[in-house]
Simulated scan of single mutants.
Amino acid sequence: MDFAMWTSPSRPWQETLERARWAERAGFAAIWFADHLMPNTADDSPDSGPMQECWSVLSALGALVPRVRLVSMVSPRPGITRWC
């Protein structure tokens, strides 16, 4: 069984990197990152809080945490079922 991690795009970059490094050390297979452009709120109302951009984060994690697979949660290419 493979395990994967999802980390919120509203968390700071340093925390995202620390979690990804932990997941790599712990043997997780993948890290999923949402490509939402607004933070989630309890009542689904819009919020203007800080957000990390998915593809930039995945690119940076790819350079710094090379063993785990990196996956966008929402915008994969149609017809592609394999992890990138």
Rank of each mutant, 00 (worst) to 15 (best):
P12L: 05
A26K: 08
P78A: 13
T7N: 06
M38A: 12
P50Y: 11
P76M: 05
A63W: 14
S59M: 11
A4Y: 00
M51C: 10
L17V: 11
L61C: 01
I80M: 14
Q14M: 07
E53A: 15
D47T: 11
W6P: 00
G49I: 04
P66E: 10
G62S: 05
A4M: 01
H36I: 12
L58G: 03
L64P: 03
E24G: 00
S8D: 13
L70A: 00
L17E: 04
C84W: 10
R82G: 09
P50S: 14
R69C: 02
A4G: 15
W83P: 04
P78V: 10
V68L: 09
T81W: 15
D43C: 09
F28Q: 02
R69Y: 03
E24S: 00
R11K: 13
W22Q: 08
R69L: 06
P39M: 06
S8N: 14
L64W: 06
A34I: 02
G79H: 05
V71G: 04
V65H: 03
E24Q: 12
Q52L: 15
F33C: 02
R69E: 08
V57Q: 05
D47F: 11
P39K: 09
S10N: 12
E18V: 07
P9D: 03
S59T: 15
L58C: 05
A20E: 01
